[in-house]
Structure formats: C-alpha cells, structure tokens
C-alpha cells in the first residue's frame, strides 16, 4: 500500500475533538445508529398507543420467553466486559491475553445468536387460528385458539402473492394448556370454513410480533456484523499487533465502541419488548 497517502490525525488525537480520526468517525456513525433505532422505538410507541383494543399483548412476556432473554442479556453484558478487557490487555502490551479476550467475546456473541435461534424457531412452530364463529374449548367459548399443529395435520401452504398462510380445508391443532395448568386440551379439528385467518407466531402474526422481529432481527444483524469484524481481528490481529501495537489497540477500541453500542441497544430492547 505504498500508494496510500499519510493522513493527519490517523493516530494522534486532534486538539478540537480529543480523538483520532477513527474514533471520531465511529462516534458519528453511532450517532446515526441512535437515530435509526430511535425511529424504530418511536414507531413501536406510536403503533402500541394506537393499537386497536385487544390486539396488543398486556406485556411481551405473554408471548415471549423472559428467562431465555434474561440469560441473553447477561451473555451480552459479559461480552461487553470481555471486549473492553481485550482492549485493556492490548494497552498493557499483552497481545496473547488480548486475543484470548477477543475470542471469548466472539464465542459469547455466538452463544447469544444460538439462544436467539431457539427463541425464533419456537415462534415459527407455534400457531394461532382466528375463527369466524366461536368454538368451545375446555368449557370456554373462544374466538381464537393458540397451539401447535398436530403430527398428522396436513402441511400448511403460503400464498406467495399475499405472503400469508392459505386457509386449508381443515387443521388439527393441539391447543396450548390454559394458564396455570400443564394439561393440554385434546386435539381439535377446525374446518377451513370456520377459519378467518391462520398465522404462526412470526412477524405477520400481529403488530407486536412484527415489531419484535424487526427490532431483534436488526439487532441480530448488528451482532453478526460485529462478529465478522471480531473474527477478522482474531485471525489477523496478532501479526498486525506485533508490527504496530498502538494502531491495533486503536482498532480494537473502535470495534469495542461499536460492540458496546450493540450491547446498549439490547439493554433497552430487553425491557421494552419482553417486560412492558
């Protein structure tokens, strides 16, 4: 790269900002990220405040899994600590220790995604059926039923042009156990003629889940982006650090800034989506 020109303040802080270029640039990028997630949070509040009666769950925990999310919160906070420890180790010229902490951060991020995968797939196997005429389940008359498809239920198909499940001839549904009990009511047979709409607990289910999947999905993409960068430094870092330890510590500091921001977003997503 001899063609590269020497850029001022590539490493040493500028008197006006007290930062080198990379760090200042990263903070600006994070400011724009604040506006991105800000717009999405704002949309969430707007849609929730305007939601028609009974279409929004009382709190996210009605549908979502709080213990798993709490575990994930701890995982992500820990990864933030290991990230900053990696930087501290590099600052003390302990490259091996720095790379080790970087690897731990990567593994924790991976663990977060694995947990998220299980959370997501649980949602995609869970269904809700809205009925035209109420049915009696377990002694109660209900207009919509939640449950899992029974084993011998014919597979559902999607109508591609409207991106929704086609109404089948009939379905066999194992309804969820009512609140406070473990016993599942017997398998139900529901005729297509009585089905107004059928959906899994994916984004199309309701505006709440749409918001949940969009926000956590976008956050997940940020995690993946961070993991790609961390992986790159795991693979190439030690050789670069031998040559230019200061520059490498700066790079890890910038990566860290991004990573802490991703953690920070989750700190707000967790209560807003799961607990409120």
């Amino acid at each position: 790269m001899s063609a590269a020109v020497a850029i001022p303040h590539d490493m040493e802080p500028h008197p006006v900002t007290g930062m080198y270029n990379g760090k200042f640039g990263l903070w600006l990028f994070l400011a724009s990220e604040v506006m991105l997630f800000g717009a999405l949070f704002s949309s969430y509040v707007l849609l929730r405040m305007g939601a028609p009666e009974g279409t929004w769950p009382k709190h996210g925990a009605e549908i979502l899994n709080v213990p798993l999310a709490t575990f994930n919160t701890v995982v992500l906070i820990t990864s933030s600590v290991t990230m900053v420890m990696a930087w501290a180790a590099l600052k003390m010229n302990n490259i091996a220790r720095g790379q080790l902490f970087l690897t731990v951060t990567f593994l924790l991020a991976g663990a977060f995604l694995v947990v998220k995968y299980f959370e997501y797939s649980e949602k995609f196997n869970h269904f809700e059926v809205w009925l035209k005429e109420p049915m009696v389940v377990d002694g109660n008359s209900v207009s919509s039923i939640r449950g899992h498809l029974a084993k011998d239920c014919p597979p559902l198909t999607k109508e591609t042009h409207i991106r929704a499940f086609a109404i089948p001839e009939f379905i066999l549904l194992d309804p969820d156990a009512p609140a406070g009990s473990k016993e599942h009511p017997p398998t139900l047979r529901i005729d297509g003629g009585n089905i107004r709409r059928i959906s899994d607990f994916g984004p199309a289910h309701s505006t709440f889940l749409a918001t949940y999947f969009t926000l956590t999905g976008l956050h997940g993409l940020h995690i993946i982006g961070g993991m790609v960068v961390i992986l790159y430094f795991m693979l190439t870092g030690s050789r670069f650090a031998q040559k230019r330890p200061d520059k490498y510590a700066d790079r890890i500091e910038c990566t860290g800034l991004y990573w802490h921001f991703v953690d920070l977003v989750w700190i707000f997503l967790f209560p807003v989506l799961y607990l409120l």
């Binding site: 949309s43 199309a204 505006t207 749409a210 969009t214």
Partner: peptide
Amino acid sequence: MDRVAGTSF
C-alpha cells in the same frame, strides 16, 4: 417487512 414478511406496520 410489510412487503416481504407480511407484517402490517
């Protein structure tokens, strides 16, 4: 999301 995932934002 509205167009691809069938949401209703």
